[in-house]
Design a protein around this nucleic acid. Structure first.
Lengths: 336, 336
DNA sequence: AATATTTCCCAAAACGTTTTGGAGAATATT
DNA sequence: AATATTCTCCAAAACGTTTTGGGAAATATT
């Protein structure tokens, strides 16, 4: 594997000149630059990343840690999200390093420390942000560039992307109300998650706009998985006064919810309405197809990377806080 | 951020000794080693990865490239797969870098070159192996350690994990035959993929064992997505002599297939039987729940990393070729 | 008491870059 | 013709480790 020294020797130039020719400095003659570029290419020279990183004190790498729950972890949201991160990073010649850890665990903490202290990454992408997320505190204190999907409640400047949920929820619930539903339940997630906070709030605002009085017994917390949604619906259907429509915090929950409804002999879309949130690809092919608030996951991921990279480079970011409007996709799971 | 030099100065030792104390060499007194470890920890010292990499000429990093298809890419298989890769790598203090590129594209080639030539990774994980996969040729030629999920047909030693499909397919098809099905279709994927080769072969062997003569018009190729499965079933149902059972190359295809069947007014599990392959988490919650050949994705990923790491370290690998038996999960989508 | 061995430590080189601070040659300006 | 300016180039230092090849002191062996 040729080094810069080999290229220099082959051309009888100093390594300084080769380096500067390759990096586009203007204190090297055009003729030599061309020559350098050509022979470097011919010799198959690629700069050694470690050496460059050591000297430059930066890594050209960004990090992302998957929020894996204990046993199994399979959410199509994340494969699309990671594809977006990886693609966009690669387009700027950055690398993406990925690891996995349960949220708010010691393993998570250890990973962040390893990456931040060891100067393993130039910046970090956070998602599934929690209301009082130690990660944003930690990264802000250490002045490590980071962007997040969803805003925490900590007094730290928020840079990233957030989904504006209220409008979409209002649309969804008004649609359900127009279909004649008045007992509309909500299946949420852990209350320390910002998405749960937002989506539950959106649900309540939606009810209010539709002039439906909120019934606390119709809000129930699950864990973002099909299993969670399945169990939650079994509870809801056991209620004396069971709901006729159910809004779920994400599509996976809705998939489990539909399963439980079917199992109880209800025809989803006729006997009960069920809606999700995320717009994962599967949602178009569930039986019946799922009404959902669709988010452009790939673009969100891509946008986050773009923002993070300019943060790292010290460019001034015109838009530090991007708001995304989810799009209501009405499908047969809510009748109509 | 303290360096090894700071630690050495604080203890009035040489950096050599500090380095060797930390690395566990036995030519340093136990008392000093303890002292070094303690103060290094107290000072918050973490070795700089770039410097270590440069000196050691290795990166403690493995790479994986997602096979993203053009528009959207969301397959829960991959979120679980990546979680397994990341977890297991992190447990050995290795990092996982992830990027994305369409299979067999110039972008894919560019990424591999960047990683291999630039010594960015110590080893690579391959999946969705193709029959004549340029990647295995390339990596073998460059003597870059790699492991793959599924074996190519190239004359290169195979190291990795493969799924033994025939047995599972025989079970599945014999089950279908016992249910009275004799027109059993197969929806596959691109024929250059090893999984397509294997699973299609398994299907044919299964038919043979069940003494059903194979009808070529019942094999149809899709693209591993729900959309593909959906379109394929529309074609199949338009046949003069339509199938009564359909075996799909993966669960996503099966999900789309069920959708199309429903849409044609067929009740899946009663009027038509549909089965998938992979055992993604959703498959338990489709309507009806999907019969599938379940693979332990997380364990497969984890196993691949373990193998790759010993390959990198030069340990002798006792098992270079691991065979996995998928497990048939019979669910209502095939009636019964 | 001399020699051999073990124990514990260290100075210096090396890994492959980028950057600093010029220096000589060519050209432009007086 | 002398001086100033611009063009090109380069030697050397630095980034933070690990490893090599000892070397001095302490201990064991004759």
């Amino acid at each position: 594997m040729p080094t810069i020294k080999d290229v220099a020797k082959a051309l009888n130039l100093s390594i300084t000149t080769v380096s500067r020719a390759l990096d586009g400095y203007d204190d090297v003659a055009d003729s030599t630059r061309e020559l350098v570029i050509k022979t470097a290419h011919k010799m198959g020279y690629t700069p050694n990343r470690a050496a460059r990183q050591l000297r430059r004190q930066q890594t050209d790498t960004i990090g992302y840690i998957l929020p894996t729950e204990k046993p199994q972890f399979a959410d199509p949201f994340y494969s699309e999200f990671i594809a977006g991160l990886g693609d966009t990073a690669a387009a700027s010649n950055f690398d993406l390093i990925v690891s996995a850890a349960p949220p708010d665990s010691s393993a998570e903490k250890a990973l962040y420390e390893r990456w931040v202290q060891g100067r393993k990454v130039d910046g970090i992408i956070i998602n599934r942000t929690r209301l009082l997320d130690w990660r944003v505190q930690y990264l802000a204190e250490r002045e490590t560039p980071f962007v997040s999907l969803e805003r925490s409640q900590l007094p730290v400047e928020f840079i990233g992307v957030e989904t504006e949920t209220n409008q979409g929820m209002i649309e969804l619930i008004s649609y359900l109300a127009n279909q004649g539903h008045s007992r509309i339940a909500y299946i949420g997630a852990s209350p320390d998650l910002k998405i749960e906070y937002d989506r539950h709030l959106g649900y309540q605002v939606g009810l209010q706009e539709a002039q439906i009085t909120s019934d606390p017994s119709l809000t129930i917390r699950a864990n973002l998985t099909p299993e969670g949604g399945y169990q939650a619906v079994r509870q809801l259907l056991a209620l004396a006064n069971a709901p006729t429509a159910i809004v779920c915090v994400n599509d996976l929950t809705a998939i489990g919810a539909m399963h439980a409804a079917h199992e109880s002999g209800l025809k989803v879309g006729r006997d009960i309405a069920i809606a999700g949130f995320d717009g994962i690809a599967d949602s178009a092919h569930t039986q019946p197809p799922l009404t959902t608030l669709d988010q452009p996951v790939y673009e969100i991921a891509s946008r986050l990377v773009t923002m993070l990279l300019s943060l790292i480079k010290g460019d001034l970011l015109s838009e530090r806080q991007v708001k995304i409007q989810p799009k209501l996709l009405i499908r047969p799971s809510t009748g109509g």
